[in-house]
């Protein structure tokens, strides 16, 4: 049994004081949001083999606390950009589920009209500004959104989700340098899930130099927090957003997380040999969703009845959204040629 990347958090053992600081409804709402993402991802996974969703999928199962913790710290007007694994952040930011599933089913009413697919989700009405399927591609674009906020005097903060492998792209460091130089209102949120497709971190980066320390060397306020703990993610991002809004410049947050499924597609692909299935099982013991559920239960904020009601409501919403997508129209040849240029 080889566990290269063990969970190094403390679960929720040191989180008792959170209960006094936040409204109970807010704490349970974050659970609802994580549970909803988990169930949506499971539903997508269970139907993927039917080949009706003709799009690559990059499931966020195991990383829900990062999506929800970060997005809960943002206002609707704050801007969010993502990479290819974008389902969790899109949903956590408030992106429309029907628009997302219609996009997966390649329908005309998909969130980007079936032109972007699963790696290019977008819902401007909630500040979900876009994603790029090129690793690190959205990082400078999000930085530009922050430059615009600064030059135009807009109040929003820009945020971008990137992965550990994105930090191997030069453009990330170009962006960080510029953001630090101009003190831009931006938060770089790095989900380090240790694998780039099947290539582990130790084959790509020297492990004795953590990613967040590299960002600190570029002059950013930089921290690392447990990405499986929604409360710690929330507080780190809240603090970074406040700094940005005050004009104190950019922050970088590294959150170690674990991807339970393969890089793409349905199911865990550990059996292919690039990681030990025991490592996946070990991380599953620190499930961000059930770990937080246990915490809320112990604190008396969630009982089995409430949980069952949430499950029921989520299940109904998912069924309706799938039905909506499946019954929606396909795009036509006319749609193919629109929006090449903007008038």
């Amino acid at each position: 049994m080889v566990i290269n990347f063990p969970y190094q958090g403390s679960d929720f053992e040191d989180c008792g004081d959170f209960v006094a600081r936040y409204e109970a409804s807010f704490l349970t709402q974050m659970f609802h949001s994580m549970l909803r993402i988990r169930r949506i991802e499971e539903a997508i996974e269970s139907q993927y083999h039917q080949d009706q969703m003709k799009t690559p999928i990059h499931l966020v199962i195991g990383q829900e606390a990062a999506s929800v913790g970060a997005c809960s710290a943002l206002k609707k007007s704050d801007i969010l950009y993502c990479g290819h694994r974008t389902n969790g952040a899109y949903l956590a930011k408030g992106g429309d589920l029907k628009g997302m599933l219609s996009e997966f089913f390649c329908r005309k009413n998909g969130c980007v009209g079936s032109r972007g697919g699963s790696m290019h989700l977008l819902d401007k009405s909630v500040g979900m500004a876009g994603s790029s399927a090129i690793v690190a591609g959205a990082v400078p674009i999000a930085t530009g959104a922050a430059l615009s906020a600064q030059l135009r005097g807009d109040d929003y903060v820009s945020t971008v989700f990137l992965g550990d492998a994105a930090t191997e792209e030069g453009v990330v460091w170009e962006s960080l340098n510029f953001a630090a130089l101009k003190k831009l209102p931006i938060v770089y949120f790095c989900e380090n899930n240790f694998f780039s497709v099947c290539t582990p971190l130790e084959e790509r980066q020297p492990l004795d130099t953590p990613i967040y320390k590299k960002a600190a060397a570029f002059g950013l306020h930089s921290v690392q927090v447990d990405g499986s703990n929604v409360l710690k993610v929330y507080e780190a991002v809240t603090s970074a957003v406040a700094r940005a809004r005050r004009g104190d410049g950019p922050s970088f947050i590294e959150v170690p997380v674990y991807r339970w499924r393969g890089h793409g597609g349905a199911g865990d692909d550990s059996a292919s040999g690039y990681r030990d299935p025991a490592e996946v099982a070990d991380w599953q013991k620190h499930c961000p969703v059930e770990g937080y559920a246990g915490f809320l239960q112990r604190e008396g904020l969630l009982d089995s009845q409430q949980r069952a009601a949430m499950e029921q409501q989520i299940s109904t919403e998912i069924a309706e959204a799938f039905q909506h997508a499946e019954q929606s129209e396909n795009p036509t040849e006319e749609d193919l040629y629109s929006h090449v240029y903007c008038n």
Binding site: T143, A145, S148, E174, F178
Partner: peptide
């Protein structure tokens, strides 16, 4: 003046353009 970061600055211009500049 810009840092010598042609890819980064082109992306930054793209993001700025998407947000009103």
């Amino acid at each position: 003046e810009t840092p010598l970061s042609e890819e980064g600055l082109t992306g930054i211009c793209t993001g700025a353009a998407m947000h009103g500049l």
